[in-house]
Amino acid sequence: MSLFFTITALITMASAIAAMTLRNLVHCVLCLTVTFAGIALVFLQLGAEFIGFSQILVYIGAVSILMLFALLMTRGGTELTLKRWDPVHWITGTLIGIAGFGVMSFAIFNSSLRQSKIPEAKADSLHALGNSLLSQYVLPLEVMALLLTVALIGAALIALPEKKVFRRNASFSKNQESGNK
């Protein structure tokens, strides 16, 4: 057992569980940031430097900050409905989670993949990745660029104030009514 991996995995799992169970929503998002950092560490240990640093840039730098902003723009603080604590709901959800984990670990322990041996260290994975992204995967790369642009415009459009839309609809229906008369 590699001690470093064990520590990383324990911290990642503990912060993931904390992120999904804590009552203060800001604490949830901060714990989720620790989880993302732990996953980045796992990527770095596996020798995928580019993926690890992308994970740090995208998830720790952007996604968690975005979530924190969204949380504070909506209400922040605590979940009001947690006062109405429903044990049946929580027990069912936890049982489904544990059952899913049980099925997955059963599959993992019974698969022939367990015997797979680790090959020699991968040389120059970033070089190979860059080559394949610009040759074999160039079309998906372009589609991804388009998707990110569409998502940027769409997110800005969705988050626009609602009033404008209502006013436009109201004036539209008024015009229609007067036209009918």
Binding site: A16, M20, H89, T94, G97, G100, M104, S105
Partner: peptide, 13 residues
């Protein structure tokens, strides 16, 4: 698998 199930529980709970 553990992280996946934690996320699933978060979505459900």
């Amino acid at each position: 698998a553990g992280l996946f199930c934690t996320g699933l529980m978060g979505v459900l709970l």
